[in-house]
Simulated scan of single mutants.
Amino acid sequence: MKKNMGTADRIIRTILAALFAILYFTNVITGTVGIVLMVLAGVFLLTSLISFCPLYAPFGLRTCATET
């Protein structure tokens, strides 16, 4: 897999994942919406860690500046 996520994209996804987790664990968001947001938070965190977003690949999107 080639890296297709830049630093800003990774930081934004990590912040959103943390925000979703905080909202869920403080019971601000509960039920089905809470579970969906937690799954999304997990996906955001995973894609941030590996610097690759599978949804970007078919469309040829890249948010990183250098070719790796």
Rank of each mutant, 00 (worst) to 15 (best):
K2I: 13
K3T: 15
K3W: 08
N4P: 04
N4C: 10
M5S: 11
M5E: 10
T7H: 10
T7L: 15
T7I: 12
D9W: 10
T14C: 14
T14V: 05
T14S: 15
L16W: 03
A17R: 02
A18Y: 03
A18I: 14
L19H: 05
L19K: 03
L19M: 09
L19Y: 09
F20Q: 04
A21V: 13
I22S: 06
I22A: 11
I22G: 00
L23W: 02
Y24E: 06
F25R: 11
N27C: 01
V28L: 07
V28W: 00
V28S: 01
I29G: 03
T30S: 05
T30G: 00
G31C: 01
T32C: 02
T32I: 02
V33S: 03
G34N: 04
G34V: 01
G34W: 00
G34I: 00
I35Y: 01
I35H: 00
I35G: 00
V36M: 02
L37V: 00
L37H: 00
M38L: 11
M38Y: 03
M38Q: 03
M38D: 03
V39A: 06
V39W: 02
V39F: 04
A41K: 05
A41L: 12
A41Q: 05
G42V: 12
G42S: 13
F44E: 09
L46I: 13
L46P: 04
L46E: 12
L46G: 15
L46R: 08
T47M: 11
T47L: 14
S48R: 13
L49V: 15
L49K: 09
S51H: 11
F52H: 14
P54V: 13
P54A: 12
L55K: 02
L55N: 01
Y56W: 04
Y56T: 08
A57M: 02
P58N: 06
L61T: 01
L61S: 04
L61W: 13
L61G: 11
R62G: 07
T63S: 15
C64I: 09
A65L: 12
A65F: 10
T66H: 14
E67N: 12
E67C: 04
T68L: 13
T68W: 07
T68M: 10
